[in-house]
Computed example of a mutant assay.
Amino acid sequence: MNKFAGYGFNKSHAAAYALVAYQTAYLKANYPVEFMAASMTFELGNTDKLNVFRQELARMGIPLLTPDINRSHSEFSVEVLPDGQGKAIRYALGAIKNVGSSAMEALVQEREENGAFCSLSDLAQRLDRA
């Protein structure tokens, strides 16, 4: 038993980590835009990590679109570029510093229920002030 404990635990974990590494590599290679959007959403509150992802997007040639109250979601999302020029990632409203995710979820819900915001005063009138 003692001899097995010296290598058995490590081997079983190495196999599990290898499977996760294979799945991660497959997703990044075959669904790069979706994979990066999900990875960035996972690190939503970590601005240092988001900067690393932004650099990786530039290296991969994937556009990162600016936040837009009429298009962004509270999490990072994938958008199809006009004229079928591929896909891009839209910056998450919830990733903006000092802006709460729950407030951005409420903004997105209001936009989906009542249409796009047409002005700053329209935005201020339609959102709950609390």
Rank of each mutant, 00 (worst) to 15 (best):
D83G: 02
Q85V: 05
T66S: 10
K28A: 06
L27V: 10
E110S: 11
F42C: 14
G61K: 08
A88R: 12
I89V: 13
Y7W: 05
E34L: 07
A58D: 11
A130S: 11
T41M: 07
A103E: 11
S102M: 13
K3Y: 08
F117G: 01
S74W: 12
F9Q: 00
I62R: 04
E113F: 06
A116V: 01
A106Q: 13
S77H: 09
F9R: 01
G6R: 03
R126M: 06
T47W: 00
M104D: 11
A15H: 05
I69F: 12
A103C: 04
R59S: 13
L65W: 15
V80I: 11
E105G: 10
S12V: 10
G115Y: 02
N2Q: 03
R71P: 09
D48S: 08
G8W: 09
A25T: 07
A16L: 09
G6E: 01
F76T: 13
N2L: 02
R111T: 02
F117H: 04
E43H: 08
Y31L: 06
E110A: 12
K97S: 10
T24P: 05
V80G: 00
A16E: 07
R59G: 06
F35R: 09
V52N: 07
A116G: 01
G61D: 06
F53A: 03
N30P: 04
F42E: 13
G86M: 03
N70P: 00
A130G: 09
F4L: 06
F76G: 03
A25V: 05
Y7H: 07
S39M: 15
Q55M: 09
Q85S: 11
P67S: 14
L120V: 13
R90Q: 14
T66W: 08
D83R: 01
L127H: 00
G84V: 01
G115A: 02
Q125K: 00
M60E: 12
S119I: 03
A103D: 13
A16D: 06
Y91M: 13
E79T: 14
E79M: 15
A103H: 15
A92Y: 06
